[in-house]
């Protein structure tokens, strides 16, 4: 069993992507023995009203039990709270993703605090996408810096029941978090962007392997990257590997609501 906690469906405005519908994505992931995937809508990132992507994604994923859709919410947009309630209660979403950089707010903004409070009340888990693509190659009309994470430890401490997951975080984003997040059970780190020879093992052990989630960022990235990192490059015990490949994802879901 392998669960990909970071996969994408739909279109990215700056590059034509392949394998971006449910059937082809699952077939592509199956080539490297990935059985299940948590998916977001790439289209949603640049929509003004991001909620417009949530119903179509839920509908698309409903036909594929191997996919678990994750909603997108912009807590600076009017009526976001209503949208988030609808995601949970009508559309069946268990998790919701935020893009603070693309939607131009900071983790320390009151709007994000409100967002976490509502997600907590709804027993959802929250994903924070630190980036979507390499900042050095952004479109000149859309240069988006990575999310500044300094406020994260205090927020995670304020909502200890709320699972918060960092997506697409690089080594330079994660290293400063090692010490201030030590012992925090509700923080989870997806590994697709951890780099360096043996980087997932080195950084994973520092952050706590029990909080590392397997993720590919497919189909923007080749899913082979994450697979090779975990199964070939790093020296994990069988138990550690199983935890990263699916066990931790199961525990995260169990720690959120039904």
């Amino acid at each position: 069993m392998i669960v990909d906690a970071n996969a994408n469906l739909g279109n990215w405005p700056f590059r034509r992507t392949s394998y971006n519908d449910p059937k082809r994505l699952l077939e592509r992931l199956a080539r490297v023995d990935i059985d299940r995937a948590w998916v977001v809508s790439l289209d949603a990132v640049m929509y003004k009203n991001v909620h417009a992507a949530n119903a179509p994604l839920a509908e698309m994923a409903a036909e594929y039990p191997a996919l678990m859709p994750v909603a997108t919410i912009n807590p600076t947009f009017p009526a976001w709270e209503r949208d988030l309630v609808e995601c949970k209660e009508s559309l069946g979403y268990r998790g919701v993703r935020a893009y603070p950089n693309y939607h131009q707010y900071e983790l320390g903004d009151p709007a994000f605090d409100d967002f976490l409070a509502v997600a907590d009340d709804l027993d959802m888990f929250v994903e924070i996408a630190v980036r979507m693509t390499d900042e050095r190659h952004h479109h000149p009309l859309c240069m988006v810096p990575p999310v500044e994470l300094a406020a994260l430890p205090d927020l995670a401490a304020k909502y200890p029941r709320l699972p918060i997951m960092l997506i697409n975080a690089k080594n330079t984003d994660l290293v400063p978090l090692i010490e201030p997040t030590e012992g925090m059970e509700n923080l989870w780190f997806e590994m697709s962007h951890i780099e360096g020879t043996g980087g997932v093992e080195q950084l994973g052990r520092s952050l706590g392997l029990e909080h590392i989630l397997f993720g590919t960022h497919a189909p923007y990235y080749y899913p082979e990257s994450a697979i090779l990192k975990v199964t070939r490059e790093c020296e994990f015990s069988e138990e550690e590997q199983e935890a990263i490949l699916y066990g931790n994802a199961g525990r995260l879901l169990a720690s959120a609501g039904p």
Partner: peptide, 15 residues
């Protein structure tokens, strides 16, 4: 490497 993972880079061909 070592700044980059052999695995991530190898995937560009194997994948």
């Amino acid at each position: 490497a070592p700044g980059r993972s052999f695995a991530s880079q190898l995937s560009k061909v194997t994948g």
